[in-house]
Write a protein that binds this DNA or RNA. Structure first.
Lengths: 302, 302
DNA sequence: CTCCAGTCTTTTATCGACAAAAAACCTTTT
DNA sequence: AAAAGGTTTTTTGTCGATAAAAGACTGGAG
């Protein structure tokens, strides 16, 4: 099988959104830039589209012959990269399934279960190891350290240090710094989401990440930025699998964010400190609650 | 070639150190534990040793027939794992060679140059990426961010936060905590090294790492521990390739460590703070000096 | 019934192969 | 001669194969 053409399929689907019957498409290079792929793949997409009669590649340009229909799209599950598939399967296994901390992780078994080659699994595990949830024994298996209380506490200990640092740095940004503008538009998004929270509460997760990443970016430190990757993956799966009281929790978090934004804008350090700590404290409580209550490190999960 | 038998060769060499003519070797399991390898490999080693007349595997046990000679050892360069070889080559390239930040890193080319398969190089790069010196473009090449001034500054910014935190935690350790004992014996080692600094100054690097790791361990936070890996690799190669005034620098660092140890033992937080900051400041200066002077991020290296 | 060595099975480390995707190069058109 | 499309080369992502190493099973001796 060598390589899957997920880039092609995802690009194809994205490209379908650009088609309006009768219109002409821009140059291949421009399309590539728009879709975030190489011109080579753009050409494959265009040829395929010509093959099914969506466009005509004549001398006058790339003419769109008809609007795309639902049937033209590749199924969504075929557009995920292998890495994403592996990550999801793995997270499901260690979170949803009854995986115990200290358990061995077997590359071969994982690969067989997911239906992919061992190299892909190996590479995933190496990449994933930076999150501190698994550990490798040289020449031997991986060990699952698990999503335990201890993990959550250690995570938040660092998060607090980094976020306070970044928030302080944020207040020192010059008045005309683009990050301040972004903060304003994030505030607008927060207010909009809060207004329609009943129907849109699931969108909070993504907004949350953008908000915190913006603050962290003020630190201008790659290690702080990279650390947010750990937080992001934890919360990503946390939000996905723990829907209990989700709407209520997200409402509260939105309100905390708004107070936090207000504090950042005021540049009053004491206020920033207070708002930041308050929000992180409630975020930690939420996370800890979803890890089964009990002693430290005895196999309780998000 | 599939897999190299470096585990076997390194185990064999280590095992040679255990041989005394006339003596008997312990059980296979015990040997495995001592050498840190599986019984399977121990058996291969023993059979090989029997083959060259080093031991006799009779019914009475594993009798050593003669003391090992220099010729019995496998050459050192055959005992390094591929990962180590790749790391060294790569570091030489990006530090010693004229690699510019922003430069592309080509897996295939690297693999060819080093003479290994692409997968090994890929895996190395993924593992190495956690250090913040390289970055991957999806579906494309890696980018060298480089050992720049900015990198060193960001590194030390976090290091200071983590080390101060850990040092404070260290002072709060109970009187009988094993780490305190270790601190005492590290102090002895420091004094010994200082006394013979003229001839042994190259040993400082290794002692330095053990000292700081001990302090960091008091934080009991996996992210703090993991972060020390970044520092460790930077200093490892820094010490290797920057021998200018090494003896003088190491003497100074040893003295700073001794003051730091003294402060930790006193449990006087103000004193700890001062000693820690003083040492980190001079460590940062040393590192920055070895990066060519100049503006930020314009391609200067350790 | 624990320890030990002998045997068999499984897993990991590494390579080479090959399709997808990117990148480089070349040609045409305006 | 810039910008677009066409062609060729290179590199990346993924797999399967294979030797080394780990691990599991087995029977015998103290």
């Amino acid at each position: 099988m060598s390589k899957q053409n997920t880039v092609f399929k995802e690009g194809y689907n994205k490209c379908l959104g650009l088609l309006t019957s009768g219109a002409f498409l821009p140059s291949e290079a421009e399309l590539g830039a728009k879709l975030g792929i190489s011109r080579t793949t753009v050409r494959t997409i265009l040829k395929t589209m010509a093959g099914v009669g969506l466009v005509e590649l004549g001398n006058q340009g790339k003419k769109v012959l008809r609007n795309p229909r639902q049937k033209d799209y590749f199924p969504e599950d075929q557009t995920d990269s292998l890495a994403e598939i592996i990550e999801r399967s793995f997270m499901k296994r260690i979170l949803a399934g009854g995986a115990q901390p200290g358990m061995q992780i077997n590359e071969l078994e994982l690969a067989r279960d997911i239906g992919v080659g061992t190299s892909s699994v190996r590479e995933f595990l190496i990449r994933f190891s930076r999150f501190g949830l698994i550990e490798k024994r040289k020449n031997s298996h991986w060990i699952l350290k698990g999503f335990t209380r201890a993990f959550a506490l250690e995570l938040f200990e660092i998060r607090e240090v980094f976020e306070l640092k970044s928030a302080v740095a944020f207040t020192k940004l010059p008045e005309d710094h683009p990050a301040r503008e972004k903060l304003d538009s994030l505030e607008v998004e927060h207010l909009a989401l809060l207004r329609e929270i009943d129907s849109r509460y699931t969108e909070f997760s993504e907004l949350d990440e953008r908000f915190h990443r913006l603050i962290h970016s003020a630190s201008r430190n790659r290690f702080v930025d990279d650390f947010y990757d750990v937080i992001a993956i934890v919360f990503h799966y946390h939000y996905q699998w723990n829907k209990l009281h989700a709407q209520q929790r997200n409402t509260r978090a939105l309100e905390e964010h708004l107070a936090y934004i207000e504090a950042l804008r005021s540049r009053d350090l004491a206020k920033v400190n207070k708002a930041c700590r308050a929000h992180l404290k409630s975020a930690r409580e939420t996370l800890l609650q979803s890890i089964m209550p009990g002693d430290d490190d005895q196999g309780h999960y998000i």
